[in-house]
Write a protein that binds this DNA or RNA. Structure first.
Lengths: 174, 174
DNA sequence: ATGGTTAGTGAGTGGCCAATAACTTTTCTG
DNA sequence: CAGAAAAGTTATTGGCCACTCACTAACCAT
């Protein structure tokens, strides 16, 4: 079910995705989702946490047994593959960021706390994989966020906007 | 009016902001907005373009007459000030990215085209300011996108997640 | 003044959507 | 096989929201 939520929320965002849509993808009636989760936000949170955990795992797996430059390139390649294989993970990240901002603005801090915790875990794993180098970690994640942005904006592969990236950080589809 | 749209859309996102809310901020009746714009998306587009143009101008003004490292630091400082002064510009950017993704997914490419054009202009101006160095431009924008992300997520100033940034790229409020 | 254009409003409509309540079916257990 | 619990459904409701329509008030040139 969380898988379906990731797919649909990634496409439509929190407000743009009806619980009915998720229910249809799961193959279940809409009210039943409210037995599995107390409300819509909880569904979104589950999807966000799953998405963060999956992304973290991709980095951990890719860098396993490697160090320094090698780990960096392995992780960059792995992220490229992640984006190519299921860009919904990337879009879900973006949806997550704006959803947290909205929740915070509405006075709901618990939602943000959970997402920040997930992000910190991601940060820590990358940090460890890069030999506990803070600067490298920040730079790596910075490039990742730019990739997220440009993919969200729909810049096609080969567009001049991508020219500052190494081959190992290229965008998704052709 | 576009100013009001930026403020409200930044806070609530495209779907989370009612035209009634914008109308109230403008001090005008809600139906009147539909005389000024054909539909809600056009209001959002106007806000997005304004936001991109404003941000571009911040970079252009900051780097005027400077070159290389000096221009880089001036622009980084200017962005820091922009975020501190009105973070809504930053949030509007994030809202813009997911809105484009949603529009593209819905088969609407014109909206994305307009936003991409604005982003390309931003890129070109930064590129020029940084001595036409593609790598520097990409790196600068990458850090900017990471800042956007972390601010959206609500990581407070001083949090360890910011430790990989130079002083000139620190987050907003105290 | 008069007739046209511009600026603006109040009231309504059709559609969507999260959440609830009450009911039915399946499955497990002894 | 009884009977409770787990898994699921249909029907509904109350509220919001983009957008339209029909109307009014102010300006402005002749």
């Amino acid at each position: 079910m969380v898988r379906a939520a990731v797919t649909e929320f990634a496409r439509g965002g929190y407000l743009g995705t009806s619980t009915e849509t998720i229910a249809q993808r799961v193959g279940v009636s809409q009210p039943y989702l409210f037995r599995l989760f107390p409300n819509k936000q909880a569904m979104f949170l589950a999807a966000a946490e799953r998405c963060l955990a999956d992304t973290t795992r991709v980095f951990v797996d890719a860098s396993e047994g490697l160090e320094g430059e090698e780990a960096l390139h392995a992780m960059a390649d792995a992220y490229q593959r992640l984006i190519a294989d299921d860009p919904e993970k990337l879009l879900m990240q973006m949806q997550m960021y704006v959803a947290v901002a909205a929740a915070e603005a509405a006075g709901d801090h618990e939602f943000g706390d959970r997402v920040r915790a997930g992000w910190e875990t991601l940060w820590d794993r990358v940090h460890l994989a890069l030999g506990a180098d803070v600067g490298e970690t920040t730079t790596f994640l910075a490039y990742g966020m730019l990739v997220n942005t440009l993919v969200s904006l729909g810049f096609p592969s080969g567009h001049r906007i991508w020219s500052g990236f190494y081959d190992s950080a290229q965008p998704p589809k052709g």
